[in-house]
Write a protein that binds this DNA or RNA. Structure first.
Lengths: 224, 224
DNA sequence: TAAACAACTACCCCAAAGGGCAAGGCAACA
DNA sequence: TGTTGCCTTGCCCTTTGGGGTAGTTGTTTA
């Protein structure tokens, strides 16, 4: 094993650390809000991007090569010129559904209900407390981590499952129903040895050794 | 098997049918609301109780012998004299957390946010459409059925799990980690035969035959 | 004090799982 | 036409699971 030491600037190092803590996409059409919140978030160790409109964020996001790899969330005002917070929510749900925190100046109950019903983490009503905000952000980051972790596991399981041939899938489906090899052989009208072989291949492809592990992997596949 | 035919009145039969469709506990301090909604719900085949205050419902509920066995939900106004909708929500969460739908005349964004954050199914803003209301009610009943079904399964699994002796639980824990009997025997420094015996007893008590079934039962126990 | 229960063990049995080795049939593809 | 992948099988072997019978020890309870 060789460790290569890549030279980095202090700036790059700081940014890497911030990304580790989490990235906040902040959208508000009031410049004062941005200039008040960005330093707050950066002080807390987050990496924060700010936008004056949902469009400017979405445009920037569209031309980006890869999705952000660490925990992140979007904090957006509901009332925005052009695409508003609720429309933004619809777009975000399409593309990965990152944790979204909505905020609003005037108490718009209808917007709040719609936003929360569609899965927003929270709906903050201005003016709000900085500590409350940070606490909500923290929750969002935790949720983001969990979601990403789970997404990785699910896609891993799906990739492995996709490697199975039709016959192999047929056989492990029956294994999961608690059937024993002999029963499966009779059901499919094939030799016991054949069942064992498919089962063995399927286990190898799925990267499992025991039935318990099999159940866990397949439970990830069969639930999206 | 003998079927006994119990004589019932037409009224009782109708009520039984309504209970099957679902029970709605309606709370609003405006009598006009109650007299408008109760017939609507009954027309739809629900069994509907109405109250002018949260207290009167909670009092009535306290002296009742058994919780309602079928699907049900609570539909309550937020602004009530005495105990308001949000306080009622706190109480309900304590006692079984049935599906709760909140409604409000004035657009109180703060209440809406708090209610939804604490798990209310929906927050309706008056005036609302009858069809919307019925659709939400229907969702709530579905959720109630699912919750009750799951609660039954979980409590069943817990009862069975509670029957296990310490040793038996130790052994099935290790079985769930994918360990084989020989490994478990070495770990606990007991004879292989003893492991088999405990395993056998545990399987009998849990009502399972295969490892796959074991995983399902225990997943219900280990997640509350 | 006897009974019930939990935990433990040895000896012995059979069924099932797991897998190595060798090999045939069939379809797609280069 | 040869290669490759998938599905198939038989023979034979070891390990593991599951369990019957019979017995010991210690603790709790009626």
């Amino acid at each position: 094993m060789s460790r290569t030491r890549v030279p980095v600037t202090l700036e790059e190092h700081k940014m890497a650390l911030s990304c580790l803590r989490g990235r906040i996409v902040l959208i508000d059409d009031y410049p004062e809000i941005l200039s008040a919140l960005v330093p707050l978030f950066e002080m807390e160790g987050y990496y924060c991007e700010s936008y004056l409109s949902a469009e400017s964020y979405l445009d920037y996001d569209a031309e980006r090569p890869l999705p952000f790899p660490g925990p992140w969330c979007v904090l957006s005002d509901v009332k925005l010129p052009g695409i508003d917070g609720l429309e933004l929510q619809r777009v975000l749900i399409e593309k990965g559904n990152p944790p979204l925190i909505l905020m609003s100046g005037n108490s718009g109950a209808l917007e709040a209900v719609e936003g929360l019903r569609k899965g927003a983490i929270d709906f903050l009503i201005k003016p709000f407390d900085a500590d409350d905000l940070l606490s909500v952000i923290s929750d969002a980051m935790i949720k983001s981590c969990q979601t990403q972790q789970e997404a990785r596991e699910v896609s891993n399981a799906n990739e492995r499952y996709a490697l199975l041939t039709t016959r192999e899938a047929e056989i492990i489906d029956r294994v999961l129903l608690g059937k024993i090899n002999r029963e499966i052989a009779e059901e499919l009208d094939i030799a016991l040895r054949t069942v064992k072989l498919h089962r063995q291949h399927a286990f190898e492809k799925l990267g499992v050794v025991k039935v318990v592990e099999l159940v866990k992997v397949i439970s990830l596949v069969k639930k999206d």
